[in-house]
Structures are given as structure tokens and as C-alpha cells.
């Protein structure tokens, strides 16, 4: 495999985690402009675990995801109740708060000859666990996609469970969901924590691939793109966001002559799609028809 192709695979894989986290919240009727905040929380936490405290790669990344999930649960404290515009505004403020706060985070320790750790606007350099552990980039790419596959299967399983039904119920009509006795608050907190964990997992994987992470990685455009990916693929299946990412990074970016115009084309694609299919390509109705069709074939 060429280096470019491997790096493309890794980027799609990492971005897919963030898109999946935005997707989960969209199902619940929440449009988050702040998932990039959980992405960098996961990245910083995983980086600290491996680079500063010498944890091995896998537990370090897992710990990063856990910290981000915890962040999501705390975020749910004030943000479980707001919806619509209020949630959008609050999550945007949260994402930016994380970015601005990281500009002031200095937490360095001596590791061998180097000072390692977050250094304000200079970011957090020297997260080398991937390379010191001798894992090749290709193996890492395969690992990321394996993790993504497992995550997708787990997400699909959860979404088919009663919890997934609950999520969609809240997304459609929160009051009606409450009046049938659904523990709405508990479902919302768990979804916000889960979404935080997914974004944080992407962050931890990213930090170890790039070997550094900086406050700029919490750019709001990451959150905006993740939302767009979730939408363009469609809200009917967790594959939707992956399709969105692959379409943007994999397809549009590989046309070199489109280089600078990518966001303009992609933005236009989203805009046009919304006019004809407001819930994305594979929306609930399409997925329902598709699964019926497949079931019929089996009989």
C-alpha cells in the first residue's frame, strides 16, 4: 500500500469516530457543534497517559476515550435539558471553551532528556508510543479500521436494542417519550457520555498517529464537518456517517484538481441534498424499505 493511501485510510478512520459521535446525538435530536472538544480531550488524556505516565498504547487510548466519556457525562449535567438552538449554541460554546482553555494548559514533566506534556498554544508534542512500540503505520491503519468495525457493530447492536429505540424516541418527541415512562434523562446522559467517548477514542488514535496534538485541533470546523458527514450519509444507519467521511475525504480529496474547492463542493452537496432528502441519503424510510426488501429475498 502506498503511504498516501495508508494516511488516507487513517484519516477516514479517525474522522469516522467523530462523525459517529455526532450521529449518535443527531438521532437524539441534538445537533452538537462541540464534539471536537471531546476529540481533543481524548487526545490530550491518551497522550498524557502514554507519553508522560508510560502507559502502553492500547490502554492509553482506551483511557483517553474513558476520560472523554466522563467529560460527556459531566457535560450532560447542564446540557441534557436544552434542545434545538439552545443545545447547538451551548455545544458550540463548549467546544470553543475547551480550545481556549487548552491554550492556557501547561502540564509538563521530565521524561528522559525531554520535557513532555501540554505546553499551551505550542500544544502537546512527543506522543511517540506508537513508534516506540514498533507498530508500523500500516498495522496501525489496520488496527484503526478493526476498532472502527467493532465500534460500528457495537453501535448497530445498541441502536437495535431498547436503548436505541429510546434514543430515536427522544429525538422525535421527548415529551411523548417521557409520558410512556422512558427514563429520558438517563438515556440522554448515557448518549452524551457515549458520544464523548467515541470522539475521544478518535482523538487518542489521532494523537498517537500525529505524535502531537494542539489546541487548534479543536477547530470548530471538525465538529461542523462531522455533523455534515452524519447528515449526508443519512440518519437511518450507523454506516451513514462512514459513507459521509469516505465521500468527502476519500472521494473528493482524491481528485487533485478539486483540491481547493473541496469544501465548496462538499458544502454544496450537503445543501442540495437537504432540499431533496432532509435526513440524508440513507434515511430511516430508505433503511426500512431496504431491510424489508432484503428480508423478502431471504424468504
Amino acid at each position: 500500500m502506498s503511504d498516501y493511501f495508508v494516511s488516507l485510510l487513517i484519516r477516514i478512520g479517525i474522522e469516522a469516530f467523530v462523525a459517529l459521535s455526532a450521529y449518535l446525538l443527531l438521532l437524539m435530536g441534538r445537533m452538537s457543534f462541540g464534539q471536537q472538544g471531546f476529540f481533543v480531550i481524548g487526545a490530550y488524556a491518551a497522550g498524557l497517559a502514554t507519553a508522560l505516565y508510560g502507559m502502553p498504547l492500547l490502554p492509553g487510548v482506551a483511557l483517553g476515550a474513558l476520560v472523554a466519556a466522563l467529560g460527556g457525562a459531566l457535560f450532560a449535567g447542564p446540557m441534557a435539558a436544552p434542545r434545538g438552538l439552545a443545545f447547538a449554541a451551548g455545544s458550540l460554546a463548549f467546544g470553543e471553551l475547551v480550545r481556549v482553555a487548552l491554550l492556557d494548559l501547561y502540564f509538563q514533566g521530565q521524561v528522559g532528556p525531554d520535557l513532555i506534556g501540554p505546553a499551551g498554544p505550542d500544544g502537546f508534542r512527543g506522543i511517540r508510543a506508537l513508534f516506540t512500540s514498533g507498530v508500523s503505520v500500516t498495522t496501525y491503519a489496520v488496527g484503526i479500521w478493526l476498532a472502527l468495525g467493532v465500534t460500528l457493530l457495537a453501535t448497530a447492536f445498541f441502536l437495535r436494542s431498547r436503548w436505541g429505540e429510546a434514543l430515536r424516541m427522544i429525538g422525535e418527541d421527548e415529551e411523548a417519550a417521557a409520558t410512556v415512562g422512558l427514563p429520558v434523562r438517563r438515556v440522554k446522559v448515557s448518549a452524551l457520555a457515549g458520544a464523548g467517548g467515541l470522539a475521544g477514542l478518535g482523538g487518542g488514535l489521532f494523537a498517537h498517529y500525529a505524535t502531537y496534538v494542539e489546541p487548534g485541533h479543536a477547530d470548530v470546523m471538525l465538529g461542523v464537518h462531522s455533523l455534515a458527514y452524519a447528515f449526508i450519509g443519512g440518519l437511518g444507519t450507523p454506516l451513514g456517517p462512514i459513507i459521509g467521511v469516505a465521500l468527502d475525504i476519500g472521494f473528493l480529496e482524491s481528485f487533485r484538481f478539486l483540491a481547493g474547492y473541496r469544501m465548496i463542493i462538499f458544502g454544496g452537496l450537503v445543501m442540495g441534498l437537504l432540499i431533496v432528502r432532509p435526513r440524508g441519503l440513507l434515511d430511516e424510510v430508505a433503511v426500512h424499505r431496504l431491510s424489508r426488501f432484503l428480508m423478502r429475498g431471504r424468504r
Partner: peptide, 26 residues
């Protein structure tokens, strides 16, 4: 998008946001 739910307009405006930001940078 006048016939769609208000939230659809909000999504559409962030798609425009990506476009306009890219446009001025270009």
C-alpha cells in the same frame, strides 16, 4: 427549505458556512 423542519435550515447554513469560509480563503 421552508417546508422542512427549522433544524434542517440550521444544518444547511453550516454547509454554507463551510463554503463561504473556503471561498474567501481561496
Amino acid at each position: 427549505l421552508a417546508r422542512q423542519a427549522p433544524v434542517v435550515s440550521m444544518i444547511s447554513t453550516f454547509a454554507v458556512w463551510m463554503q463561504l469560509q473556503e471561498l474567501v480563503s481561496l
